[in-house]
């Protein structure tokens, strides 16, 4: 069973948050260990599922923000 500390490191590895030396070392351990590679694959699969949830705002919202910016720029010029 993968211990808590290693699980934390795998999550950090997945989000590219480990220092380069630790990143390379753990990535190498993951490729050499069936248990670690299985655990890492689950983390990556869950992240892929989460990516599918990404939603876009309504274009009108963006338009309102841009209009507000132009309006405030116009006010600054006067």
């Amino acid at each position: 069973m993968v211990n808590t500390s290693t699980l934390n490191k795998l999550i950090q590895l997945s989000y590219s948050e480990l220092p380069e030396s630790q990143h390379e070392e753990l990535a190498s351990q993951v490729s050499d260990s069936y248990e670690l590679s299985e655990t890492f694959a689950v983390i990556e699969e869950l992240k892929t599922l989460l990516d599918g949830e990404m939603e876009a705002p309504n274009p009108t919202s963006v338009k309102i923000i841009l209009e507000e910016s132009q309006r405030s720029s116009a006010l600054e010029m006067h």
């Binding site: 949830e53 990404m54 939603e55 876009a56």
Partner: peptide
């Protein structure tokens, strides 16, 4: 905004 809108909105 276009670059980051989806992450911020989600």
């Amino acid at each position: 905004i276009n670059k980051h809108k989806n992450k911020v909105f989600t």
